Every structure is written in C-alpha cells, then in structure tokens.
Amino acid sequence: MRSLRTHRARVVVAGVAALAAVGLLAGCTAGSTSAEESVDQGTTSEENAATGDTVTIGFSGPAADHGWLGAINSGALAAAAKYPDVTLQAAEGTNDVTAQIAAVETFINDKVDAIVLLPSDGAALTEVAIKAMQAGIPVINVDREFSSPFAARSTVLGDNYGMGVSAGTYICEQLGDKPGAVVAEIAGIDSLPLTQDRSAGFKDALSDCGLDVSARVAADFTVQGGEAAASQLLSANPQIDAIWNHDDDQGIGVLAAITSAGRDEFIMVGGAGSKNAMEAIQADDSVLKATIIYPSTQAADGIALARLIAQGKTASDLITPSVPNRIVLDAPVVTKDNVADFIDLAFES
C-alpha cells in the first residue's frame, strides 16, 4: 500500500513539473524580452561619463596624520575635481568625533546631494549618518564601518582579513619548504578591529602551509612606534625567517630598526602600499620583498559612487541596474615582478 501511494505521488509531481515546464516555455516564447533587452536596464559607461546634473557632495575624514590618510583625502579631492558636474564641500579633517559629527550636521543643513564619510570612529558617527539618510541624503561609508545597516547607502572597504591572507600566502610560498620557520608579525594598534582582522587572516593563511606566528608585537601605525616594536622583536628573537609588518608608514621605523640591528637573514612583507615601500621593493636591496595593498583610493571610489547615486545612475558594468551597497576592494601582493603596475597609485609615507 505504501509503495502504491509513493508511486501515485511521483506521478502527480511529474505531472506538475511537466505543466510548469510548458508554462515556462510559453512564457519564454510569448511574453519575454530578448536577452539584449533584459540586461539593458541601467546606465551605460558613456552615460555615466557624460556630464549630468550638478551635485554637491560633502566629504569628511579623519586628520591626515600619516601617509595613507593623506592619500585618502587628496584622492577624494582629485576624484571630485575630475567631474565637472560635482561640487565638493570638504570638511577639515579631524580625529575629534564631536567635530566630525558637527561637520555632517552642516552637510545635512546645507542639503547636500550625497555625503562621503570616513569616520574617525564608525560607531560614534552612526547616529548622525542615519540622520542624513533619513533626510534623504545618501551616505557613502568609507573604510571604517558604521554600526547600523541603516547608516549608509553604500560602503567601500579595504579587505583587512584579505591583507592577512595575502601576506600569509606569500610567506608560505617563500618558506613552504621550511616547516620550522620562524614567522614574526608586527601589527598595528591591537584594539582596532582592522588589526584583529589582519592578524586573523595572516594566522589562517599560515596554517594552510603548516606555519604559525612564532613572535608578535604591536605598534601604532607611526614611524616611532614601528621602530620601537621592531627593536623589541629583534632583541627577543635571534633568528627569524619572515616578518609581516601591517603598515608601510610604521614600516619606515621597522626598517630603521632592522638596519640598526644589522639583521638581514629574513624576508619582510609590508602592508598598505606606500611609494617608499614600492621603491624599496623595486630596488631589491633590502629585506623588504613585498607589500600588500590596502587601497588609499577608497574615498576617491566613494566620490565616484556618490556621484552615480546622486544622479540616479548605476554601475554600468553590472547587469543589476543599481550601485552595490557594499564593495570590498582587493588586497593584492606587490613584488618586484609587478610593482610597476601599482606604483603610480602608491602614497607617500
């Protein structure tokens, strides 16, 4: 009896499937558009490049207290300047949360068309970003995420976890035949989620080739901090095979400490992609053999997205007629073999 019921159930399912297939076929032949028509939903590259309605974009970021942030700010200004239909209203860079909130409040009161915001503290700027969104002003969040999905129309991020993965993978490729290799890590500010993400990616990538982090110190993204942390690391570890330093700005101090200690038995990988680091990689005359890109173009990308959104345009190379609400940029490895492809976008430490 059970087998008969099962058989009948299969017949019913088969019949429904057949009817559905006929319905789909009829729909395709009778009422659907052609493939060309179905994907031609958004604006084209030519339409995006063409001058549109003039839009005012407010931009606020932290103080440019090191090279990467300086490049972030200058990149935003340069991106806005290339569009004749963009007026940029830039606030003075600040690490004072209260001052940055006030800058965003000014943008809201001035009724700008869009806001690009690299917050000094993502959580602290979330409330005012939500206020802007509720006022109908799209917010493009850059680098440091807000704590609510309602605070931004689109978010542009570097890949911190991916940086760690790229660094660990490169070191695995160089030291894969040395299972007992000593791998050291010079992190940035340990309390920051971005540092924690970079370290997690690094650890995970190393584990894939049987390596781990043998020694680790943290610095503070400054030259002085990098030199102090590296000096401590080198003193405590007489033999090292590879070092990953999270940040090329602090890497100037790291390299100074290495030179002072007269150490050269290891390879070093940097992070962020400064021009100084790339020139050293190009010269190939130091322990620095690679760096991992953390794009300083994020705010420039934010300006470009803000213009598209404010003008009602779309990301032309995507089929979906919209602008993505989250973009995570790549974290490629730069070596002497490909440094020429990246050095023009590098920032000065």
Rank of each mutant, 00 (worst) to 15 (best):
I343A: 03
K203G: 12
T94Y: 06
E127G: 07
G270R: 00
V116E: 02
G158Q: 04
G210Y: 00
G225R: 05
F342K: 00
A26L: 08
G158W: 00
M163V: 05
V217D: 01
G23L: 11
E173A: 12
D241R: 00
L206Y: 06
A340C: 04
G226E: 00
I319W: 10
A135I: 10
D40M: 07
I327W: 00
A315K: 08
V217S: 05
V16C: 12
A167N: 05
D241F: 02
T33G: 14
P179F: 07
V55D: 03
F221E: 03
Q134S: 14
T44Q: 00
N338G: 02
D113F: 06
V97N: 06
I293N: 04
D204Q: 08
R2P: 12
T155Q: 15
D301S: 10
I319R: 09
Q89W: 13
K82L: 13
S274E: 01
L234P: 03
A315S: 12
E47F: 02
A21V: 11
V104K: 07
L308Q: 15
G58C: 02
V323H: 07
A129H: 03
K131L: 07
C209V: 08
A151E: 01
V287S: 04
S286K: 00
A135H: 10
A236T: 12
D344R: 10
T94R: 04
L118V: 15
A304N: 10
V269C: 03
S286L: 01
M1K: 07
A331G: 07
L118A: 10
L288D: 05
G93Q: 06
A76V: 11
Y294K: 04
T291W: 14
Q41C: 12
G188E: 06
E92P: 13
Q298W: 01
L288R: 01
Q100W: 03
N160Y: 08
K275G: 08
T320Y: 08
I267P: 06
Q250F: 01
P332R: 08
G164W: 09
Q89T: 14
A315V: 15
L175I: 11
